Amino acid sequence: MFPQHGPGRKHLRKIELTDWQREIVAKYPEQLLRGLFHSDGCRFVNWASKPGRDKRYYYVRYLFSNKSDDIRNILTDALDLLGIAWRRPRWDHIAVSRKDAVGVLDGFVGPKS
């Protein structure tokens, strides 16, 4: 059971994995990431343009949003474990935007069910 179950608001209380949960995450980080992105994340097509140009380019991106520092840290620890590049565009968001990193996530996260 993931430790978000309990009394009080998630972002106001401590959420940490126990030793046995960390062992499972170390063995199966893909399943944890899939669950986190399916619960509090999304996969979408983003666009950008270069300064001084009117042309847009489009790319796929994963975005995870959660107000709990602990849950975001659990996510980023699992991404680091798999060598997946991520960044923090806002204090409560984690983004995976690089083409190779998105390709890795596409291999096991997939569309929400």
Rank of each mutant, 00 (worst) to 15 (best):
M1I: 13
F2T: 08
Q4V: 14
H5G: 11
H5P: 02
G6K: 07
G6I: 10
R9G: 02
H11T: 04
K14W: 10
E16H: 12
D19R: 13
W20D: 13
I24W: 15
V25R: 05
V25P: 02
K27C: 01
K27I: 00
K27Y: 05
Y28I: 01
P29A: 10
L32K: 09
L32G: 04
R34A: 07
G35L: 04
L36V: 00
L36N: 04
F37H: 02
H38C: 05
G41H: 00
R43Q: 09
V45K: 03
R53G: 06
R53D: 07
D54T: 03
D54F: 02
K55N: 11
K55L: 04
Y57C: 12
Y58T: 03
R61C: 08
R61K: 13
N66Y: 07
N66F: 00
K67L: 06
D69N: 04
N73R: 13
L79A: 03
D80T: 09
L81F: 13
L81G: 12
W86T: 10
R88N: 13
R90Q: 15
D92G: 11
H93Y: 15
H93N: 13
H93A: 12
I94P: 05
I94T: 09
A95V: 10
R98A: 15
V102N: 03
L105A: 04
L105V: 04
D106K: 07
G107L: 09
F108D: 12
V109T: 01
P111N: 07
P111E: 10
K112R: 14
